[in-house]
């Protein structure tokens, strides 16, 4: 790997990890940017992450027909942190008490899309996928000496994601803008959660359905048949009310992708070598 690539990768890794944030209202899963190039190809991907935002995600993609792709994604995120329960904290008033929270979000989706190659050497893979999925969030608010308070909600997400991937030798770069339509449907909220948090939940309910763009970029390195990629998917927002909800979360994942067609080829070539 040339020095320039290493520098780019190092900067990308540092920047994306520094930008890693989650939201207890909505955190985007990693955009599944397809790698297939023809009918019959497919891939399985997995990622795990640790720390205050821990969890895992799994993705699969398959091309049942030339230029047509299917995908299935699952995202499991655990998070924790603390929030100010009330406003205030300005001199001479004492700072507002902090409330700790812990939560988990689960999200699953399936999608269908189109892809085709472009470029002189077919080095670009253009794709357009649509997907629908459901998510569920469960949050616990923890304050000393009082019972835990819970808030749960369910949402549907409908998305459309145009994407482009560039393969250059062993390196691949990809980008996608995912247009997401997130519709919160049901929720059950203990109204004794901190007042500011209750305000945010009410805002979430009032703002639903929400539409926004999510931005993905990915850098991968290919060890045939596996590709290791660093991905970051962030919510890009415009409306102030959405910013107040702190939805501008950025999910970073280090993902391993097993290219099934390459694995199959590898097995076939091993078989041939054995026969020889």
């Amino acid at each position: 790997m040339s020095r320039a690539y290493k520098v780019v990768l190092a900067i990308g890794l540092a920047a994306s990890l520094a930008a890693c944030t989650s939201s207890r209202f909505y955190t985007p899963n990693t955009v599944n940017l397809p790698t297939m190039s023809q009918k019959g190809e497919g891939a399985l991907s997995g990622a795990t992450f640790f720390g205050s935002n821990s969890g895992w995600e799994a993705q699969a993609s398959y091309s049942p027909a030339q230029h047509v792709g299917l995908m299935v994604n699952y995202f499991s995120l655990n998070y924790k942190g603390s929030i100010a329960g009330t406003s205030g904290g300005f001199f001479p008033f004492p700072p507002p008490p902090q409330t700790n929270f812990e939560g988990r979000m689960r999200f699953g989706e399936a999608g269908l899309g189109l892809y085709r190659h472009a470029g002189k050497n077919r080095e670009y893979l253009l794709s357009l996928f649509g997907a629908a999925g459901q998510g569920h969030a469960h949050n616990l608010y923890i304050e000393p000496d009082v019972p835990l308070k819970e808030a749960t909600w369910t949402f549907w997400r409908y998305s459309l994601q145009p994407g482009v991937r560039l393969q250059h030798r062993r390196l691949s770069f990809g980008a996608s803008f995912r247009f997401s339509y997130v519709q919160y449907t049901t929720g059950r909220i203990d109204a004794r959660i901190p007042r500011l948090e209750l305000d945010r939940v009410e805002m979430l309910e009032a703002q639903s359905p929400m539409m926004f763009w999510e931005v993905l970029w990915t850098v991968g390195y290919h060890f045939r048949p596996i590709t290791v990629s660093l991905n970051t998917t962030g919510v890009a927002l415009g409306k102030k009310s959405l910013n107040d909800l702190n939805l501008a979360s950025n999910h970073v994942s280090l993902m391993a992708t097993l290219n099934l067609h390459e694995l199959k080829k590898e097995k076939q070539s091993r078989g041939k070598r054995k026969k020889k």
């Binding site: 409908y158 519709q183 059950r188 203990d190």
Partner: peptide, 25 residues
């Protein structure tokens, strides 16, 4: 194959259903 899928997706998205949260105190 693709167009009906996208059309269905857009139709689903167009169903602007409001959230209905239950609060208990």
């Amino acid at each position: 194959l693709g167009l009906p899928f996208f059309a269905a997706l857009l139709l689903l998205a167009a169903c602007k259903q409001k959230a209905d949260f239950e609060y208990y105190y």
